[in-house]
Write a protein that binds this DNA or RNA. Sequence first.
DNA 1: CACCACTTCTGCGAAATCCGCAAGGTTCGA
DNA 2: TCGAACCTTGCGGATTTCGCAGAAGTGGTG
Lengths: 172, 172
Amino acid sequence: MHSEVVASRSADQRDSSRESRNGTPTLDAVSLAIIQQLQEDGRRPYAAIGKAVGLSEAAVRQRVQKLLDQGVMQIVAVTDPLTVGFRRQAMVGVNVEGDVESIADALTGMSEVEYVVMAAGSFDILAEIVCEDDDHLLDVINKRIRALPGVRSTESFVYLKLKKQTYMWGTR
Amino acid sequence: MHSEVVASRSADQRDSSRESRNGTPTLDAVSLAIIQQLQEDGRRPYAAIGKAVGLSEAAVRQRVQKLLDQGVMQIVAVTDPLTVGFRRQAMVGVNVEGDVESIADALTGMSEVEYVVMAAGSFDILAEIVCEDDDHLLDVINKRIRALPGVRSTESFVYLKLKKQTYMWGTR
DNA sequence: CACCACTTCTGCGAAATCCGCAAGGTTCGA
DNA sequence: TCGAACCTTGCGGATTTCGCAGAAGTGGTG
């Protein structure tokens, strides 16, 4: 009647939190389905989720709590920064000599930096910066990032228009 | 006792949804405070938010509903893609000849593309791609993106390690 | 100033949800 | 066989959500 995701809960998809090789918990199909529900609506009631994934309300509650505790997922409000008063954003590509990770850590510590990723290619690090205005952006890039010892060069891409921003992993 | 954000709701911060010049709604201090609460916990009850921002439960509910309807904010579960089974991610810089926006729209239509932004600098568009494995990633970049008419060239930055990912705009 | 249209906030029941808890079943692995 | 982990069912009580009616403030107009 109502689309069940799981028919039989047989051996190959039962464990919801075993540790895999790299230390991150492995997710089974049911937890994935729960996350999917919460990606559509973070406030969806547990009973509705349970009906959708084929679990009781209590079980969903336990799983969600565990997923949150483990840090696998978080339920948050996300906004378009422009609407909230941050008018200048940029992606900054950084080239590093020496220890890349320590530079990445330094960037991570800056509150204006929303996103830091170590990458392969012509940049060692990509960092997204969210600022209130041009002065602020300039300050962060030139005075703070370029000033870090070990930063060889940077290249900035100022955002003109945000076209897409999704959080629908697994919903494909 | 409990920190009130707003003391007097006087003229200069009353409107919660007026249209500003560029068409995006302007937010007042109260809505900002509500968003802030929901960035800490997307499931926080309306009454608790109301207490924190100095509004009744019903008022908070109405404002949240409006913010959601307007698309100013969404309440969702966010995860680390790696944990959910997407092992390859990349940022792709795209150079375009002709209409940049139509290319951006095409990218937006691809489910593997999580993030699309039009930028100034040596790339016209930056797009973040989330894939299950190398084959998938290769396919998206070479067969689908490069195949778009108007795409002059692309450059890929494969993610090695995600260091930071925040959703705390306004919480500074 | 009076009046109207509009929006927002408040207050209040009724319904739904959340939450903790307990008892019992199943499966898996030590 | 035992323990651990997980799920289910069921249950109340506390909390939250939800819809609605009424009050209050704003802006525009004559």
